[in-house]
Design a protein around this nucleic acid. Sequence first.
DNA 1: CGCGTAATTGAAAAGTATCAACACTGGTGG
DNA 2: CCACCAGTGTTGATACTTTTCAATTACGCG
Lengths: 186, 186
Amino acid sequence: MIRTNTELLEYISNAIKMPSTYFVEEKIKKNTCWIEQNQKIFHVYVIKSGVAKCYLTQDTGNDFIQEFFGEGELFGEVEAIRDGQSFCAIEAILDMEVYKIATTHFLELLENDKVFNKLIFKSMASKIKYKAIRHSYNQSHSIKLNLLRLKKQFPNLFSIIPKQDIANYLGVTLRSFNRVLQEIEK
Amino acid sequence: MIRTNTELLEYISNAIKMPSTYFVEEKIKKNTCWIEQNQKIFHVYVIKSGVAKCYLTQDTGNDFIQEFFGEGELFGEVEAIRDGQSFCAIEAILDMEVYKIATTHFLELLENDKVFNKLIFKSMASKIKYKAIRHSYNQSHSIKLNLLRLKKQFPNLFSIIPKQDIANYLGVTLRSFNRVLQEIEK
DNA sequence: CGCGTAATTGAAAAGTATCAACACTGGTGG
DNA sequence: CCACCAGTGTTGATACTTTTCAATTACGCG
């Protein structure tokens, strides 16, 4: 549920040592929102360390969290490829370090570097699969089963991520989340 | 909600005229399920005509429909790229014609044909965005609002797609779906 | 200490699922 | 031509789940 991508991280860790690299390192403080929804964006990012949430704010005012990004995760690539606006907001949950690359350079790399090209394909394919499986599980199970599934995948989840965020990830109210959590404990 | 991809369809319509093409045309009868869940698959497909549903069957026995595929839509690509098993089932809702290509040839094309490479990136980026927006809307709105949204996007939806499928797309029971539909009508 | 954010809990209202019965339709065989 | 059947669609009553609203407590930090 906190997603990672070792392969991509490794690639970029190496790439950044080259003098000709397009990647730049940047630090982001906890709780800062550094991509807003529906904005034209000009960079693609890969996470070096820390955790961020990727969420959509609805007309109802609710935030629905798509994923939690961990080490090696990529974002901004969809916008770069489609030449569109951001459709998610990105906000740091912990202090972060990221690798940043301008979209033009990202597209250039994509075209000229076959290894990079493949890595990005893999990353995007994983996103598609992840979303498909998670959303269909989410939709067709009760809060209780969803929560049990989360706890199984990430036993120490609650120590990292605020409860409101977990509720937003599951798409339920904090009240319901708490009730179910209490039921499970006993 | 019935997704399409004109650009990709055009590309393949041209490609298939070449003597050297890897693509093969195939017909699929209405109501046949031609990709099952959790099977190793060996081809990638692009739809020439017709409509298919892409769904996941849960441990509860429920089917959750991810998307309805229309002309130009691509599938099997995630499995090809990740070298994995199918995570969705694909079933024809109408009689269909599809373009078929072996995964090995698909990957070869991806590597050697820059135009094709870009088209596939675009298609995958669209899938990611589509899933993100649709699922977050789905999660944070009532059946009624979801249904109104659907009707707005596809006024003639009900004439093409069985109600049970629409309910499965929204992740609700047929009973609830019907009640809400009735409320809306008046 | 006092402030704001996060977490907890209760009671009532709203939304959805479950179960079960019945209606409509098109196709098939006698 | 009719009887039958399977698939699809419709509807009601009830039980269950989740949200809404509101009040209270716990915690970290200047």
